[in-house]
Amino acid sequence: MVKLRIDGIDIEALEGMAILEAARLKGIDIPALCYHPKLSPYGGCRLCIVEIKGMPRPVTACTTTVSEGMEVRTTSPYIERLRKTNLDLLLSDHPYDCMVCQKAGECDLQDLAYQYGIREPRFKGERRIYTKRDGNPFIERDMEKCILCGKCVRICDEVQGVSAIDFAYRGLKTKVCPPFERDLDCEFCGQCVMVCPTGSLVGKNWIGKGRARNVGEVNTTCPYCGVGCSLTLHIKDNKIIRVSSKEDSVVNEGMLCAKGRFGYDFVASPDRLKTPLIKRNGRFEPVSWDEALDYISKRLKEIKEKYGPDAIGGLSSARCTNEENYLFQKFMRAAVGTNNIDHCARH
Protein backbone atom coordinates (compact mmCIF):
# COMPACT_ATOMS: atom_id res chain seq x y z
CA MET A 1 0.00 0.00 0.00
CA VAL A 2 1.05 3.54 -0.72
CA LYS A 3 0.20 6.42 1.64
CA LEU A 4 -0.50 9.81 0.18
CA ARG A 5 -2.50 12.92 0.92
CA ILE A 6 -5.07 14.40 -1.42
CA ASP A 7 -6.66 17.75 -0.52
CA GLY A 8 -5.48 17.28 3.04
CA ILE A 9 -7.05 13.81 3.37
CA ASP A 10 -4.81 10.82 4.11
CA ILE A 11 -5.39 8.02 1.65
CA GLU A 12 -4.01 4.51 1.35
CA ALA A 13 -3.93 3.33 -2.22
CA LEU A 14 -2.69 0.27 -4.06
CA GLU A 15 0.63 0.56 -5.77
CA GLY A 16 0.22 1.48 -9.42
CA MET A 17 -3.14 3.16 -8.87
CA ALA A 18 -3.77 6.46 -10.62
CA ILE A 19 -4.21 9.57 -8.45
CA LEU A 20 -7.71 9.95 -9.87
CA GLU A 21 -8.70 6.47 -8.71
CA ALA A 22 -7.13 7.00 -5.28
CA ALA A 23 -9.08 10.25 -4.90
CA ARG A 24 -12.34 8.51 -5.80
CA LEU A 25 -11.75 6.00 -2.99
CA LYS A 26 -12.39 8.85 -0.58
CA GLY A 27 -15.14 10.44 -2.61
CA ILE A 28 -12.97 13.22 -4.02
CA ASP A 29 -14.28 13.77 -7.49
CA ILE A 30 -11.85 15.08 -10.07
CA PRO A 31 -13.56 16.10 -13.34
CA ALA A 32 -12.62 13.81 -16.21
CA LEU A 33 -14.18 13.03 -19.58
CA CYS A 34 -11.81 10.42 -20.98
CA TYR A 35 -11.36 8.28 -17.87
CA HIS A 36 -13.23 5.00 -17.36
CA PRO A 37 -12.33 2.41 -14.72
CA LYS A 38 -12.48 -0.45 -17.23
CA LEU A 39 -10.17 1.21 -19.76
CA SER A 40 -6.50 1.96 -20.10
CA PRO A 41 -5.58 5.51 -19.01
CA TYR A 42 -5.54 8.03 -21.81
CA GLY A 43 -4.90 11.55 -20.55
CA GLY A 44 -6.75 13.11 -23.45
CA CYS A 45 -9.29 15.54 -22.05
CA ARG A 46 -6.86 17.36 -19.74
CA LEU A 47 -9.59 18.13 -17.20
CA CYS A 48 -8.26 15.94 -14.40
CA ILE A 49 -5.16 18.07 -13.94
CA VAL A 50 -3.91 18.33 -10.35
CA GLU A 51 -0.98 19.92 -8.57
CA ILE A 52 1.60 17.77 -6.84
CA LYS A 53 3.89 19.30 -4.26
CA GLY A 54 7.40 19.48 -5.63
CA MET A 55 6.39 19.20 -9.27
CA PRO A 56 6.76 22.30 -11.41
CA ARG A 57 3.66 21.80 -13.57
CA PRO A 58 0.18 20.30 -13.13
CA VAL A 59 -0.20 16.68 -14.21
CA THR A 60 -3.18 14.60 -15.32
CA ALA A 61 -4.51 12.55 -12.40
CA CYS A 62 -5.66 9.68 -14.62
CA THR A 63 -2.19 8.91 -15.96
CA THR A 64 -0.05 9.73 -12.92
CA THR A 65 0.30 6.91 -10.42
CA VAL A 66 0.41 7.37 -6.67
CA SER A 67 3.69 7.36 -4.79
CA GLU A 68 4.61 7.31 -1.10
CA GLY A 69 4.23 10.63 0.68
CA MET A 70 2.74 12.38 -2.35
CA GLU A 71 0.76 15.55 -1.61
CA VAL A 72 -1.90 16.35 -4.18
CA ARG A 73 -4.20 19.33 -4.63
CA THR A 74 -7.14 18.70 -6.90
CA THR A 75 -8.45 22.22 -6.77
CA SER A 76 -7.06 25.74 -6.51
CA PRO A 77 -7.79 28.98 -8.30
CA TYR A 78 -4.90 28.23 -10.64
CA ILE A 79 -6.05 24.65 -11.40
CA GLU A 80 -9.63 25.76 -11.85
CA ARG A 81 -8.57 28.47 -14.29
CA LEU A 82 -6.62 25.96 -16.36
CA ARG A 83 -9.46 23.47 -16.22
CA LYS A 84 -11.95 26.07 -17.37
CA THR A 85 -9.69 27.00 -20.26
CA ASN A 86 -9.38 23.35 -21.30
CA LEU A 87 -13.13 22.90 -21.09
CA ASP A 88 -13.60 26.10 -23.05
CA LEU A 89 -11.34 24.71 -25.78
CA LEU A 90 -13.40 21.51 -25.95
CA LEU A 91 -16.61 23.51 -26.21
CA SER A 92 -15.18 25.76 -28.91
CA ASP A 93 -15.46 22.86 -31.33
CA HIS A 94 -18.81 21.54 -30.15
CA PRO A 95 -22.19 22.44 -31.62
CA TYR A 96 -24.56 24.51 -29.51
CA ASP A 97 -27.61 22.33 -29.91
CA CYS A 98 -28.27 21.15 -26.39
CA MET A 99 -31.90 22.14 -26.93
CA VAL A 100 -32.40 19.31 -29.42
CA CYS A 101 -29.70 16.94 -28.25
CA GLN A 102 -30.83 13.51 -27.01
CA LYS A 103 -28.18 13.60 -24.30
CA ALA A 104 -29.28 16.89 -22.65
CA GLY A 105 -29.70 16.41 -18.93
CA GLU A 106 -27.31 13.48 -18.72
CA CYS A 107 -24.37 14.82 -20.72
CA ASP A 108 -21.03 15.03 -18.92
CA LEU A 109 -19.87 17.89 -21.13
CA GLN A 110 -23.06 19.86 -20.55
CA ASP A 111 -22.79 19.27 -16.80
CA LEU A 112 -19.26 20.62 -16.73
CA ALA A 113 -20.18 23.65 -18.85
CA TYR A 114 -22.97 24.29 -16.35
CA GLN A 115 -20.64 23.81 -13.40
CA TYR A 116 -18.01 26.17 -14.82
CA GLY A 117 -20.56 28.64 -16.14
CA ILE A 118 -19.44 28.62 -19.76
CA ARG A 119 -22.26 30.15 -21.73
CA GLU A 120 -20.30 30.94 -24.83
CA PRO A 121 -16.74 29.82 -25.58
CA ARG A 122 -14.02 32.44 -25.69
CA PHE A 123 -12.26 30.79 -28.59
CA LYS A 124 -13.76 31.51 -31.97
CA GLY A 125 -12.41 29.68 -34.93
CA GLU A 126 -12.89 26.87 -37.36
CA ARG A 127 -15.27 24.10 -36.30
CA ARG A 128 -15.62 20.59 -37.63
CA ILE A 129 -18.75 20.35 -39.74
CA TYR A 130 -19.82 16.85 -40.67
CA THR A 131 -23.01 16.11 -42.51
CA LYS A 132 -22.65 12.39 -43.04
CA ARG A 133 -24.64 10.22 -40.68
CA ASP A 134 -24.17 6.48 -40.26
CA GLY A 135 -26.76 4.22 -41.92
CA ASN A 136 -26.54 1.41 -39.35
CA PRO A 137 -29.87 0.70 -37.63
CA PHE A 138 -28.70 0.89 -34.01
CA ILE A 139 -26.31 3.71 -33.23
CA GLU A 140 -26.54 7.37 -34.22
CA ARG A 141 -23.02 8.73 -34.68
CA ASP A 142 -22.80 12.52 -34.71
CA MET A 143 -19.11 13.28 -34.97
CA GLU A 144 -19.57 17.05 -34.57
CA LYS A 145 -20.36 16.41 -30.93
CA CYS A 146 -17.33 14.19 -30.41
CA ILE A 147 -14.64 15.50 -28.06
CA LEU A 148 -12.17 12.75 -29.06
CA CYS A 149 -11.95 11.30 -25.57
CA GLY A 150 -11.40 7.89 -27.20
CA LYS A 151 -13.51 5.94 -24.71
CA CYS A 152 -15.53 4.36 -27.51
CA VAL A 153 -12.35 3.33 -29.33
CA ARG A 154 -10.88 1.83 -26.18
CA ILE A 155 -13.96 -0.04 -24.97
CA CYS A 156 -14.49 -1.54 -28.44
CA ASP A 157 -10.90 -2.74 -28.50
CA GLU A 158 -10.07 -3.48 -24.86
CA VAL A 159 -13.36 -4.86 -23.57
CA GLN A 160 -15.41 -5.99 -26.54
CA GLY A 161 -12.38 -7.15 -28.50
CA VAL A 162 -13.88 -6.00 -31.79
CA SER A 163 -11.96 -2.84 -32.77
CA ALA A 164 -14.66 -1.67 -35.14
CA ILE A 165 -13.65 1.99 -34.84
CA ASP A 166 -10.50 4.04 -34.47
CA PHE A 167 -9.16 7.54 -34.90
CA ALA A 168 -8.70 8.67 -38.48
CA TYR A 169 -7.07 11.81 -39.93
CA ARG A 170 -5.03 14.26 -37.88
CA GLY A 171 -5.23 17.60 -36.12
CA LEU A 172 -8.55 19.42 -36.32
CA LYS A 173 -9.82 16.83 -38.80
CA THR A 174 -9.29 13.92 -36.41
CA LYS A 175 -12.40 11.81 -36.07
CA VAL A 176 -13.52 8.45 -34.82
CA CYS A 177 -14.87 6.20 -37.55
CA PRO A 178 -15.04 2.65 -38.90
CA PRO A 179 -12.48 1.71 -41.57
CA PHE A 180 -12.70 3.92 -44.68
CA GLU A 181 -15.54 5.85 -43.04
CA ARG A 182 -18.01 3.19 -44.03
CA ASP A 183 -21.15 2.64 -41.99
CA LEU A 184 -20.65 0.92 -38.69
CA ASP A 185 -20.77 -2.85 -39.15
CA CYS A 186 -20.01 -4.50 -35.83
CA GLU A 187 -21.59 -6.49 -33.00
CA PHE A 188 -23.75 -3.44 -32.11
CA CYS A 189 -23.32 -4.08 -28.41
CA GLY A 190 -23.53 -0.35 -27.76
CA GLN A 191 -20.78 -0.37 -25.12
CA CYS A 192 -19.48 2.73 -26.98
CA VAL A 193 -22.85 4.41 -26.46
CA MET A 194 -22.69 3.59 -22.77
CA VAL A 195 -19.33 5.31 -22.26
CA CYS A 196 -19.76 8.30 -24.59
CA PRO A 197 -19.65 11.45 -22.42
CA THR A 198 -21.51 13.60 -24.96
CA GLY A 199 -24.39 13.21 -27.39
CA SER A 200 -22.02 11.96 -30.06
CA LEU A 201 -23.22 8.35 -29.72
CA VAL A 202 -26.84 7.60 -28.87
CA GLY A 203 -29.28 4.82 -29.66
CA LYS A 204 -31.19 5.52 -32.87
CA ASN A 205 -34.43 4.30 -31.38
CA TRP A 206 -34.12 6.63 -28.38
CA ILE A 207 -34.28 9.76 -30.47
CA GLY A 208 -37.31 11.96 -29.96
CA LYS A 209 -38.88 9.57 -27.43
CA GLY A 210 -38.10 11.68 -24.38
CA ARG A 211 -35.24 13.00 -22.26
CA ALA A 212 -34.77 13.23 -18.50
CA ARG A 213 -38.11 14.83 -17.66
CA ASN A 214 -41.03 12.53 -16.79
CA VAL A 215 -39.00 9.43 -17.48
CA GLY A 216 -39.12 6.70 -14.88
CA GLU A 217 -36.53 3.96 -14.41
CA VAL A 218 -37.29 0.35 -13.51
CA ASN A 219 -34.52 -2.14 -12.79
CA THR A 220 -35.15 -5.64 -14.04
CA THR A 221 -33.50 -8.68 -15.63
CA CYS A 222 -32.95 -9.23 -19.35
CA PRO A 223 -35.46 -11.59 -21.03
CA TYR A 224 -33.09 -12.99 -23.67
CA CYS A 225 -30.28 -15.48 -22.90
CA GLY A 226 -29.36 -17.18 -19.62
CA VAL A 227 -26.66 -14.74 -18.51
CA GLY A 228 -29.22 -12.64 -16.65
CA CYS A 229 -27.87 -9.16 -17.27
CA SER A 230 -29.36 -6.34 -15.22
CA LEU A 231 -31.44 -3.96 -17.28
CA THR A 232 -32.80 -0.54 -16.49
CA LEU A 233 -35.93 0.20 -18.46
CA HIS A 234 -36.56 3.88 -19.10
CA ILE A 235 -40.31 4.42 -19.10
CA LYS A 236 -42.39 7.28 -20.38
CA ASP A 237 -46.16 7.21 -20.89
CA ASN A 238 -46.35 3.43 -20.31
CA LYS A 239 -43.70 2.80 -23.00
CA ILE A 240 -40.12 1.59 -22.83
CA ILE A 241 -38.17 4.37 -24.52
CA ARG A 242 -34.67 3.09 -23.84
CA VAL A 243 -32.76 0.32 -22.12
CA SER A 244 -29.54 0.81 -20.20
CA SER A 245 -27.71 -1.06 -17.49
CA LYS A 246 -26.15 0.07 -14.24
CA GLU A 247 -22.38 -0.22 -14.12
CA ASP A 248 -22.51 -1.61 -10.59
CA SER A 249 -24.51 -4.68 -11.63
CA VAL A 250 -22.51 -7.78 -10.77
CA VAL A 251 -23.28 -10.02 -13.73
CA ASN A 252 -22.66 -7.60 -16.57
CA GLU A 253 -21.19 -4.43 -15.02
CA GLY A 254 -23.33 -2.28 -17.30
CA MET A 255 -22.33 -4.10 -20.46
CA LEU A 256 -25.04 -5.45 -22.77
CA CYS A 257 -25.35 -7.07 -26.19
CA ALA A 258 -27.36 -5.85 -29.17
CA LYS A 259 -30.43 -7.81 -28.08
CA GLY A 260 -30.43 -6.61 -24.49
CA ARG A 261 -29.68 -3.00 -25.32
CA PHE A 262 -31.65 -2.48 -28.51
CA GLY A 263 -34.05 -5.43 -28.84
CA TYR A 264 -36.87 -4.20 -26.59
CA ASP A 265 -39.36 -2.87 -29.14
CA PHE A 266 -41.20 -6.20 -29.28
CA VAL A 267 -42.92 -5.22 -26.02
CA ALA A 268 -44.83 -2.42 -27.74
CA SER A 269 -45.24 -4.26 -31.04
CA PRO A 270 -48.62 -3.79 -32.73
CA ASP A 271 -48.64 -7.59 -33.21
CA ARG A 272 -49.06 -8.22 -29.48
CA LEU A 273 -52.01 -10.41 -28.59
CA LYS A 274 -54.58 -8.22 -26.87
CA THR A 275 -57.59 -10.47 -26.39
CA PRO A 276 -58.36 -14.16 -25.94
CA LEU A 277 -59.13 -15.99 -29.20
CA ILE A 278 -61.21 -19.08 -29.87
CA LYS A 279 -61.03 -20.88 -33.19
CA ARG A 280 -64.42 -21.31 -34.82
CA ASN A 281 -64.79 -22.72 -38.31
CA GLY A 282 -61.06 -22.51 -38.82
CA ARG A 283 -60.80 -18.85 -37.85
CA PHE A 284 -59.83 -17.13 -34.63
CA GLU A 285 -62.52 -14.97 -33.06
CA PRO A 286 -61.88 -12.54 -30.21
CA VAL A 287 -63.78 -13.54 -27.07
CA SER A 288 -64.02 -12.39 -23.46
CA TRP A 289 -61.82 -13.90 -20.75
CA ASP A 290 -64.85 -15.53 -19.17
CA GLU A 291 -65.79 -17.23 -22.39
CA ALA A 292 -62.25 -18.44 -23.07
CA LEU A 293 -61.66 -19.71 -19.54
CA ASP A 294 -65.07 -21.42 -19.36
CA TYR A 295 -64.38 -23.14 -22.65
CA ILE A 296 -60.95 -24.35 -21.56
CA SER A 297 -62.05 -25.61 -18.16
CA LYS A 298 -65.08 -27.37 -19.59
CA ARG A 299 -62.99 -29.16 -22.21
CA LEU A 300 -60.24 -30.05 -19.70
CA LYS A 301 -62.81 -31.52 -17.32
CA GLU A 302 -64.43 -33.54 -20.13
CA ILE A 303 -61.10 -34.90 -21.35
CA LYS A 304 -59.96 -35.78 -17.84
CA GLU A 305 -63.21 -37.59 -17.17
CA LYS A 306 -63.17 -39.50 -20.43
CA TYR A 307 -59.48 -40.40 -20.75
CA GLY A 308 -57.96 -39.74 -17.33
CA PRO A 309 -55.54 -36.99 -16.23
CA ASP A 310 -52.57 -38.44 -18.13
CA ALA A 311 -54.31 -37.56 -21.41
CA ILE A 312 -53.50 -33.94 -20.58
CA GLY A 313 -50.05 -32.40 -20.86
CA GLY A 314 -48.47 -29.02 -20.17
CA LEU A 315 -45.49 -27.30 -21.73
CA SER A 316 -44.04 -24.58 -19.62
CA SER A 317 -41.63 -21.90 -20.62
CA ALA A 318 -38.03 -21.08 -19.96
CA ARG A 319 -39.07 -17.50 -20.78
CA CYS A 320 -41.53 -17.17 -17.90
CA THR A 321 -40.71 -16.33 -14.27
CA ASN A 322 -40.00 -18.82 -11.50
CA GLU A 323 -43.34 -18.01 -9.92
CA GLU A 324 -45.20 -18.70 -13.19
CA ASN A 325 -43.33 -21.94 -13.80
CA TYR A 326 -43.94 -23.07 -10.25
CA LEU A 327 -47.63 -22.30 -10.54
CA PHE A 328 -47.92 -23.98 -13.92
CA GLN A 329 -46.46 -27.29 -12.73
CA LYS A 330 -48.53 -27.05 -9.55
CA PHE A 331 -51.59 -26.59 -11.76
CA MET A 332 -50.73 -29.65 -13.86
CA ARG A 333 -49.90 -31.81 -10.84
CA ALA A 334 -52.35 -30.69 -8.18
CA ALA A 335 -55.29 -29.41 -10.25
CA VAL A 336 -55.15 -31.68 -13.32
CA GLY A 337 -53.45 -34.62 -11.61
CA THR A 338 -50.65 -35.56 -14.02
CA ASN A 339 -46.85 -35.36 -14.17
CA ASN A 340 -47.00 -34.61 -17.91
CA ILE A 341 -45.16 -31.35 -17.57
CA ASP A 342 -42.03 -30.27 -19.39
CA HIS A 343 -40.40 -27.32 -21.07
CA CYS A 344 -38.64 -27.13 -24.40
CA ALA A 345 -35.13 -26.21 -23.34
CA ARG A 346 -33.97 -29.56 -22.07
CA HIS A 347 -30.26 -29.94 -21.88
Binding site: A318, C320, Y326
Partner: peptide
Protein backbone atom coordinates in the same frame (compact mmCIF):
# COMPACT_ATOMS: atom_id res chain seq x y z
CA UNK B 1 -20.13 -24.85 -16.33
CA UNK B 2 -23.08 -25.48 -18.62
CA UNK B 3 -24.16 -22.05 -19.91
CA UNK B 4 -27.94 -22.08 -19.98
CA UNK B 5 -29.52 -20.78 -23.14
CA UNK B 6 -32.64 -18.96 -22.05
CA UNK B 7 -33.31 -16.31 -19.44
CA UNK B 8 -35.01 -18.69 -17.07
CA UNK B 9 -34.24 -22.21 -18.24
CA UNK B 10 -32.42 -22.79 -14.97
CA UNK B 11 -35.45 -21.54 -13.09
CA UNK B 12 -38.00 -23.55 -15.04
CA UNK B 13 -36.14 -26.79 -14.26
CA UNK B 14 -35.58 -25.68 -10.66
CA UNK B 15 -39.31 -25.08 -10.41
CA UNK B 16 -40.13 -28.63 -11.42
CA UNK B 17 -41.27 -28.12 -14.99
CA UNK B 18 -39.77 -31.51 -15.79
CA UNK B 19 -41.80 -34.66 -15.90
CA UNK B 20 -39.98 -36.61 -13.19
CA UNK B 21 -39.36 -33.92 -10.57
CA UNK B 22 -41.20 -31.58 -8.27
CA UNK B 23 -39.57 -28.22 -7.56
Amino acid sequence: NPLRGQNNVQGSTDMGCISDSYP
